[in-house]
């Protein structure tokens, strides 16, 4: 009996032989951030180093692109660079704790105001002078953040492009999330989502961000056929921000003064995202004063990446109209 038990123990110990790594090691499973890789383009906003870059002539009208999440990054938004040829200055940034930006402890994501202040800082960084026109282009959570900023600063920008914001209140957002992320316990994709938890656990950003990326294998009901492009997800940022919202739903209400913004807003929703749909888009659009609601054909939630061919001419026409 003793030999049997010893053999079983040996089988397990064999796995510790040979070259092995730690999931927490920098650069093995997720790319380094601006804190570890000095070659990455970065800006410092409110004491946090953000991965950020801009394209085009800095004196042209500024289009600041705001990615989704919280926790995603701007890689899936890079099609907006096409607007450089239309004489726009296009800037991107990864929000704090997301993409290749600096990682912070969970407490750093304890208020929506932190994201709004960060956005204000990025606008100030790229805006060359007071007369330069500024347009915010936000996707998903990024569209919510753009709306939150305008709710506090109704006259601060000259236009806004919103692609499927989840909601402008927690009630709207919760309704959308519950439709788009249903856990079906007997489904392959749901089990793919939760089964990996027994292989890897961790408390460091490298491990947690890697696990977050793997969770994309779980199917979501947003009409996309493949995962959006990304550099690196921010797991702590994402989880802390969601917890913040659930614990303090009153923080997520961007409708109080949004109607003071009277510039026309382009509001896009996708044809294939059944969890969103025209009805949800119309509900959100009813909070806005001056809005053009458009359906983007042949794509799901990831409009700026997978729906760009149809989205781009609409964006271009909108910009030509308002500027």
């Amino acid at each position: 009996m003793r030999n049997v038990i010893l053999s079983l123990i040996c089988i397990s110990l064999m796995s510790s032989c040979g070259d092995t790594y730690n999931t927490s090691d920098v650069g093995l499973l997720v790319p380094p951030t601006v804190m570890e890789d000095a070659s990455l383009s970065a800006i410092d906003i409110n004491g946090v180093r953000l991965h950020s870059e801009a394209f085009g002539k800095s004196s042209d009208p500024l289009i600041l692109v705001i990615h989704g999440g919280p926790g995603a990054d701007y890689r899936s938004q890079l099609n907006f660079i096409d607007l450089v040829t239309d004489n726009y200055y296009v800037a991107f940034y990864d929000q704090r704790g997301s993409g290749l930006s600096q990682r912070l402890d969970a407490e750093a994501y304890s208020s929506v105001q932190g994201y709004i202040d960060e956005l204000a800082g990025v606008i100030n960084y790229y805006k060359q002078d007071e007369n330069q026109q500024v347009i915010l282009a936000g996707h998903s959570w990024g569209a919510m953040l753009a709306t939150a900023y305008i709710n506090q600063n109704p006259n601060a920008v000259d236009g806004m492009i919103l692609a499927e914001p989840g909601g402008f209140t927690w009630q709207e957002t919760e309704a959308y999330i519950s439709r788009s992320r249903q856990l079906k316990l007997f489904d392959e994709s749901t089990n793919d989502f939760v089964y990996q938890d027994q292989f890897i656990t961790g408390d460091d950003h490298n491990t947690l961000d890697y696990k977050f990326a793997l969770s994309l294998a779980g199917d979501v009901q947003t009409g996309d056929t493949s995962i959006p492009s990304f550099w690196r997800y921010g797991a702590v940022c994402s989880n802390a921000s969601i917890k913040l919202t659930i614990d303090n739903p009153e923080q997520l209400d961007f409708t109080k003064d949004i109607k003071l913004h009277d510039q026309k807003i382009l509001f896009a929703y996708s044809e294939l995202n059944e969890a969103y749909g025209k009805e949800h888009a119309e509900l959100l659009a009813s909070s806005l004063k001056n809005v053009e609601l458009v359906e983007i054909e042949n794509c799901g939630h990831e409009i700026p990446e997978f729906g760009w061919d149809n989205f781009y001419p609409i964006v271009k026409a909108y910009l030509n109209e308002i500027l």
């Binding site: 092995t20 790594y21 730690n22 499973l29 790319p31 292989f199 961790g202 990326a213 493949s226 550099w231």
Partner: peptide, 26 residues
């Protein structure tokens, strides 16, 4: 220990991702 082998779909997101044995993973 866990051996992680990544598909091209994930490698397209990060080309330097390492297929290898990782120790004491959880």
């Amino acid at each position: 220990a866990s051996h992680l082998k990544h598909t091209d779909e994930l490698r397209n997101m990060y080309s330097n991702i390492q297929d290898a044995w990782y120790r004491n993973t959880g």
